[in-house]
Design a protein around this nucleic acid. Structure first.
Lengths: 135, 135
DNA sequence: AAAACATTGAGACCAAATATCAATAAAACA
DNA sequence: TGTTTTATTGATATTTGGTCTCAATGTTTT
């Protein structure tokens, strides 16, 4: 997947800051990150970048369907995995794991009921196997 | 369901403030509300109550399994429906609707994979039938 | 190379939620 | 019922995540 091409063909301009963020998210694929995570890493390479710009860029990447997001623990988490999966957050170590799922029938029945579903997130919490075993 | 009894048997004290919040959530069942919504209504009856207390009480009610919560649009939403369902938020009118679902098989397969799931939320966004029709 | 237009950076700003802690109230029990 | 124990509340300050504004800058088109 060429994110730069996707960005351009979505009608957005390719700026150095956007390239740095794309490099960051590629280095974190698959994975989950917050605006703060992007900022602190990209800021080392591009010291003038601000949080506001990071937020702008992440929103742009969502509009280009390069990223997806969900809210958890008071923050917005981003991911490049736009496919059908659940996000599991471990309440012990805080790590987020993708759990693959088949497309849930709820989306189909919601559509049948007249709901036009444009975004869906399945979020689980609990204790991951690693933390359960180390107790 | 007697929320007061549940609260007491969970080891929490029954205070006037907690009673007012319980009255509020009962008047909003089924439904979805934020801390701010609880505050502005309860504050009319119990003018000394503060947001901090409302947050405390809502957390207590979650610990007693009277409420469940999820995060959406930068806020935490609470609901008394603790059963298996999805929450659909309409991006036009902002209303949140419960969509009943059968317990998703992901929880079973997550358990099989060693994940101990203590909380799950299925969140959908899009356009509701009402808003779709009025366009 | 210049014009047209989108994007960025800086900092003020806003809203949601948490932390602190003395005063108060509920429940247990003498 | 009065007293003790212990949880809870209210007031305020603070933290955190995120948005707004707008002049300066950078990208793309011609």
């Amino acid at each position: 997947m060429d994110y730069v091409q996707t960005l351009r063909s979505s009608g957005f301009k390719v700026t150095p800051q956007r390239l740095r963020v794309i490099e960051y998210i590629m280095s974190r694929t698959p994975g989950h990150f917050r605006a703060e995570d992007v900022y602190s890493e990209v800021h080392r390479i591009e010291p003038t970048i601000t949080m506001a710009t990071v937020y702008n860029i992440l929103r742009t990447l969502q509009k280009s369907s390069i990223l997806k997001s969900f809210e958890l623990k008071g923050a917005t988490w981003f991911e490049t995995n736009t496919g059908s999966h659940a996000n599991f957050m471990c309440d012990v170590c805080g790590e987020i794991t993708d759990l693959e799922i088949e497309q849930h029938s709820i989306i189909k029945s919601a559509s049948d009921a007249g709901y036009n579903v444009t975004d869906s997130n399945y979020i689980l919490r609990g204790v991951c196997p690693k933390c359960r075993d180390s107790q």
